[in-house]
Write a protein that binds this DNA or RNA. Structure first.
Length: 436
DNA sequence: ACACATGATTCATA
DNA sequence: TATGAATCATGTGT
């Protein structure tokens, strides 16, 4: 094709010069073509074309004014539309063959993914609703807890809103820039289409290219927005980074259970679930809590003595209200662990009443003892151990050490295989009735 | 700023 | 797989 064009030009070079000036001079809209070249003689038409092409070729050599005038003249030339369309066609063929295939744009799966995610996160989509929905979802993922997450929620929401705003601002900016640029290019091309072969189709294609470019930029924006949201989410959800203490109430419930099952502080799955429900935390949080509690309690029972007493007394009192002796135990004295330290400090205090591995037949694990009784016993054990002047731990033991302890051989014995008192169990001895 | 409390995670183990 | 132990990382009180 180009060859043809070139030949066309070539063959007419030097021939048309004379006519050129004429044609240029004639270029007024209302003026007809120079002479009777109308559709007439084919040779004349060819030469005409050659002239025009020549003019186009040399237009850049002209001074600005001259060129402008010539442009105008050319635009008004009667042959212009035909020539233009031919050139467009030629160009179309060459250009299209180069990159025509890629025209159809399949919906980029990645872009769709990003869009979906942004929508799900509430960054894209409708105004506020999405954001809160996302926050709620995040909270749900966070672990069902709800009690006092509101502060966190608002924090999360605020940050999300920030991201959202930036995202929209940027998006709008891109959109606007894209539109501006598109119209600019379109105008430019339209303008240029007067002097060079640019078909509407090509303009369209150009616009498509521009849009693609911009949408790739938008994709980057979306991608980084997604990343930001992800980071925010992970920070928000990563409880380790942003640890929140459980509510006081939850801790109470957990402690209550722990100390009332001190002989076997291993809640069953059901128990965990119930505790989780009561505390507004997850089962795994309950497990964590008990895991930590056990190990920490065992590590330093003295430190927990007071706490143990409190809870033990509490449950004991509430449970065995009928029995009239727990009261003294819960006396808020034993302030410091001094009391406990007395006898328990060095060795493991627990040994006193726990870790009675050698006990006779207590083969029965929890199965043998109802939880109620057991917890009861545990509580009382504490109460007693404390109330009865520490030096006298034995007494308490003998009175209250429950079979349950031996059941698990004393879960805390591992560290302190030390002495073991004989825990004669008088199941009956201890007011086992009421449950906690 | 510091030490301590505490929930979570990791890894080894039975 | 549940647990113990060590550890991390943050919250909290001083």
């Amino acid at each position: 094709m180009m060859d043809e064009q070139g030949r066309l030009l070539q063959s007419h070079i030097g021939v048309g010069m004379g006519a050129l000036s004429g044609a240029v001079g004639m270029g007024h809209p209302h003026m007809g073509p120079p002479d009777g070249v109308d559709g007439g003689g084919g040779g004349g038409g060819k030469q005409d074309i050659g002239d025009i092409l020549q003019q186009i070729m040399t237009i850049t050599d002209q001074s600005l004014d001259e060129a402008q005038a010539r442009k105008h003249a050319l635009n008004c030339h009667r042959m212009k539309p035909a020539l233009f369309s031919v050139l467009c066609e030629i160009k179309e063929k060459t250009v299209l063959s180069i990159r025509g295939a890629q025209d159809d744009d399949p919906p980029d799966p990645q872009l769709m993914r990003l869009d979906n995610m942004l929508l799900a996160e509430g960054v894209a989509g409708p105004e506020k609703g999405g954001g809160s929905a996302a926050a709620a979802a995040a909270a749900a993922v966070a672990g069902g807890a709800n009690a006092d997450n509101s502060a966190e929620h608002s924090d999360y929401r605020a940050k999300l809103a920030q991201i959202r705003q930036i995202y929209h601002t940027e998006l709008e900016k891109y959109e606007q820039a894209c539109n501006e640029f598109t119209t600019h290019v379109m105008n430019l091309l339209r303008e240029q289409s007067r002097t060079r072969p640019i078909s509407p189709k090509e303009i369209e294609r150009m616009v498509g290219i521009i849009h693609r470019k911009f949408s790739s930029i938008q994709m980057q924006l979306k991608q980084s927005t997604c990343e930001a949201v992800m980071i925010l989410r992970s920070r928000f959800l990563d409880a380790r980074r942003k640890r929140r203490n459980f509510s006081k109430q939850a801790t109470e419930i957990l402690n209550e259970y722990f100390y009332s099952h001190l002989s076997n502080p291993y809640p069953s799955e059901e128990a965990k679930e119930e505790l989780a429900k009561k505390c507004g935390i997850t089962v795994s949080q309950v497990s964590n809590w008990f895991g930590n509690k056990r190990i920490r309690y065992k590590k330093n029972i003295g430190k927990f003595q007071e706490e143990a007493n409190i809870y033990a007394a509490r449950t004991a009192v509430s449970a065995t209200s009928s029995v009239h002796h727990g009261s003294q135990a819960n006396s808020p004295n034993t302030p410091t662990s001094a009391g406990s330290s007395g006898s328990f400090s060095m060795p493991n205090p627990s040994d006193m009443f726990l870790g009675i591995p050698g006990m006779n037949g207590d083969s029965y694990s929890s199965s043998g003892v109802t939880p109620n009784i057991q917890s009861q016993v545990d509580s009382l054990r504490h109460v007693m151990s404390q109330s009865s002047a520490y030096g006298d731990g034995m007494a308490a033991n003998q009175l209250y050490s429950p079979p349950a302890m031996s059941a698990n051989g004393g879960w805390q014995d591992a560290t302190t295989p030390s002495s073991v008192t004989s825990p004669t169990e008088g199941p009956g001895s201890v007011h086992s009735d009421t449950s906690n």
